[in-house]
């Protein structure tokens, strides 16, 4: 076989899928850690968690330093691959019959777009705190003098509209992970005929658990069960 210069990982079809899978799995890991931290809200520990987190400045910045490029890479390649896929198959058939693909797998670009939009909103809301400045944690201290993160969250999620935005966006996250989690194993070659059904189910379960863990917060707040 004559030796030829091959494309780099970043321009190869499989190479980019591998990068998608790696960055995707990083973000899943982030989502898991994030939701574990968030769960402190149930036993009034959110403010303390937030305070401790912010004391670990290097860790916070290191995470941001890693996650932001991962996110950008994931978004960039996701959009690029989707555009290529669209042009590789411009039209479907007169009768639409899906054999194995799912609603989730066919709409990754849309669930991804929804997540991206939500991410911007979510950061503006709770990180930069510019959406409802009156309840901003940075402006309100709790009884112990810490920034009142829990108060900010509960204040926001008490609104039906805001809760619905969160619930809707989290559904997008669920769809994205329902396909993405298992798909990442395939892209990384971590699958075979025997393991494939287990990976499919496992990926779906991960997505479901993450979804439930996240969605409980706005649901319980809006129902008045979690009051802070």
């Amino acid at each position: 076989m004559p030796e030829t210069v091959s494309r780099g990982i970043g321009s190869s079809t499989v190479g980019r899928k591998i990068l998608m899978a790696v960055t995707g799995q990083m973000m899943i890991l982030f989502a898991v850690i994030h939701v574990v931290g968030n769960s402190t809200i149930y036993f009034s520990g959110l403010n303390s968690y937030a305070e401790h987190l912010h004391e670990l400045v290097p860790l916070v910045w290191a995470t941001r330093f890693v996650m932001l490029p991962a996110l950008l890479l994931h978004v960039f390649f996701g959009v690029q691959l989707a555009l290529e896929n669209n042009s590789a198959k411009e039209s479907g058939y007169s009768v639409n019959t899906n054999l194995r693909s799912t609603f989730a797998s066919r709409n990754m670009i849309w669930s991804g777009t929804l997540i991206a939009a939500f991410l911007v909103y979510h950061l503006m809301h709770f990180t930069f705190q510019v959406i409802s400045p009156e309840a901003a944690a940075s402006a309100n201290a709790d009884a112990l003098g810490r920034p009142d993160v829990a108060g900010m969250v509960i204040y926001a999620l008490r609104s039906y509209v805001v809760s619905l935005v969160y619930i809707f966006s989290l559904t997008g996250l669920f769809l994205h992970l329902a396909h993405g989690a298992q798909s990442s194993f395939q892209s990384l070659g971590l699958s075979n005929e025997g393991a494939e059904p287990a990976i499919s189910k496992g990926g779906y379960s991960v997505a479901l658990v993450i979804f439930i863990a996240y969605v409980l917060i706005p649901v319980l707040v809006v129902l008045g069960i979690v009051k802070g």
Partner: peptide
């Protein structure tokens, strides 16, 4: 890719 085939999204169709 050169031939215009798309990328794999693991749909398994």
């Amino acid at each position: 890719s050169d031939e215009g085939f798309g990328n794999c999204s693991n749909h398994y169709e």
